[in-house]
Design a binder for these strands. Sequence first.
RNA 1: GGCGACGUAGCCAAGUGGUUAAGGCGGGGGUCUGCAAAACCCCUAUUCGGCGGUUCGAUUCCGCCCGUCGCCUCCA
Length: 492
Amino acid sequence: MRLYNTLSGTEEEFIPSGERVKMYVCGITPYASSHVGHALSAVVFDVLRRYLEFQGYKLQHVQNFTDVDDKIIARAAKQGVTYRELADRYIQEYTSDMDLLNVKRAHAYPLATDAIPRMVEVIADLIDKGYAYPSNGNVYFRVTMDDDYGKLSHRSLDSMIAGARVEVVEGKEHPMDFTLWKAAKPGEPAWESPWGPGRPGWHIECSTIALDHLGESLDIHGGGLDLVFPHHENEIAQSESYTGRIPFARFWVHNGLLNLGEDKMSKSLGNLVGVSEALEHHSSDALRLYFLSSHYRSPLNYSAEGLAAMERAAERLRNALRQDSTTGNDALDPSHYEKQFVTAMDADLNTPQAIAALFDLAHEINRARERGQKVGQAQNSLRKLGDVLGLTFRERTSQEALSLEPLAELFKDIGATLNASGHHKLAGWVNSHSDAQDAATIVETLLAIRRELRQVREYDFADTIRSRLADLGVGLEDAQDGTVWKHRQSVV
RNA sequence: GGCGACGUAGCCAAGUGGUUAAGGCGGGGGUCUGCAAAACCCCUAUUCGGCGGUUCGAUUCCGCCCGUCGCCUCCA
């Protein structure tokens, strides 16, 4: 496949260097709930992984957690918990959010704090080699020693300084020198080192963890576009200076960032939408379709309206997966659509086009079914290709989507109306389920009642039940072989 | 100030130097249905921010302009 490489600034043919594709993706700093921007990034690399696996590659996917840093420490102190407790809490939350998004788990989630002794070794070696120097309990990387510093972000040291936002820090030889080891202030969690107690800088963590888990050369290093500089630039500087092996990562892959309204969604602006918040209102399929309906390198604006539209689009795909006909003779051949899908994904993960192939296939399935063809094979194909994008084609269950109280109230109400209008038999059905504790039982009973009403042509009453269920988010479809109901996304 | 991205229908969003500019949502009409819903059929950009240039031919390449956004500081 062709894959855009930030390092070269072009698309290149992706061929792994060995048996397994070694993919390292920068993880989160667990000091707060993860937001939909994190979800976007996770989904992008999940799809890259799924597609490579679909193509028959074996992968080793590693993603770190930066479980100690200034913000974690500050926040933990504020809440009166240890940094450990705070980090663990948000790591757990992140993991469960990603599970709900159907993101495949990485093969390893190393913690920064577990790798500190190794980082100390690496830093010491960098000092020995002249790439770093201690200063007042800190250790800095000497950027002037690295001839190709700036090659990833495509800027020169001079132009960085011309940016004029570099602040002069006491003890640094060069304003762009960055921290490898940070001396601890009193009361902060600290680890021993030859330079005094402290903790590692952010960048050295990823270099060291990647090195330890995946070796000196990665196939793919991923992350958000906002990490290109300084984080990934510095990782390259550290890793290549330490190992002498170039390149540290063969492909640098960066996803575009998610904006909220006019602004980038960022912690500093505080305009965050949490992953769990988004999942309360939208299915994971809708979220994934939304993320993947624009190219992964483009910026994307988060919008609830856009997601609601994707919810309907997801339903369209699901509808194509309904029961196959059993009587058909010839079968629909999905291979044309599979080719389209693969061609699209091969072109730097062109998921918008891949999704279009999915919709074309779904459309063709519906047409073929009307023609009386067998569509089972094509449906399997749709499921299989959808799975490459991490789509589940599952509706949210009634428990997740429907609240019981308004339904129970409606149920009672209908029972009373039935009684009042002389439908004592049907009112009895309500009574016999009057203590129903789940939404499904209530809906099913109402559907049975409605069927009876339709049979005796009391359409007004039947339609009332339908519309009142619709008000509660239950959509009805009367098909040949009975009525199907589903939760419909309420308009946000 | 430096580096970079983008501007395609009502909305979201692919794409190509030259046959009909994907797909989704929305909208209109029709088939089916007791009515709906779903599904199917038809329609919904003579046109790709503006102005020049290159070319037989540009939405696609180049230049300028206008507009939007990102990075350069913690950030997926």
